[in-house]
Computed example of a mutant assay.
Amino acid sequence: MAYEPSYAERLRYKRLQDAGYQAGLEAVTNLQAALALAGMVLPSLANDGPVGARGFVRLGGCSVEVANRLAEVIAAGAHALQEQGM
């Protein structure tokens, strides 16, 4: 006989799924805003829905130019954070 979750368990899981989905939306919005500051866009950046009740963001593909520029921006930000910590 298969396990059947209770109503309370199903409701708790749905709340976790909803929270994961919302977290994914917020992460996409935050990343889009940060990329815009650098003059960049990842066209296929999207909320990929919750996976295991956790938010999941699909970054998708981009051109070599965008990938290299993104690497430069991330490296520059990382160096700036390291310098602040010294």
Rank of each mutant, 00 (worst) to 15 (best):
H79F: 05
V28M: 03
D18H: 04
E72C: 04
L16E: 14
A53C: 15
S63L: 11
Q22L: 13
H79D: 08
G49R: 13
G24L: 05
A71T: 06
A36G: 04
A71S: 12
S6Q: 10
M40P: 02
L37H: 15
P5T: 08
K14L: 10
R12N: 08
Y21R: 12
A38N: 13
P50F: 10
V28D: 04
L31M: 10
G20H: 06
G61I: 07
L11M: 12
A53T: 15
V28R: 08
A27E: 11
G39L: 06
D48V: 00
A67W: 07
A36C: 02
A80W: 05
A19S: 07
L45I: 07
V41S: 11
L16D: 12
A67T: 04
G61D: 11
G49E: 13
G55T: 07
Q82N: 08
R58T: 04
L16Y: 00
M86A: 10
V41F: 02
R12F: 09
R10P: 00
M40Y: 04
M40D: 03
N47K: 09
A8N: 12
S44P: 00
A53W: 02
A76R: 10
A76W: 03
R10C: 09
V66P: 01
A33H: 09
H79P: 00
A23Y: 03
M1A: 15
R69C: 03
R12K: 14
Y21M: 00
Q84M: 10
L31F: 05
L45Q: 07
A46G: 04
L59V: 15
G24N: 08
V28W: 04
E26H: 06
L31V: 03
S6G: 12
A78R: 11
G52F: 08
A67L: 13
A38R: 06
R69D: 06
A46L: 06
A8K: 08
G60S: 11
L25H: 03
A2M: 08
G20M: 08
D18C: 02
L37K: 15
A80T: 09
S6C: 09
S63M: 12
E9V: 04
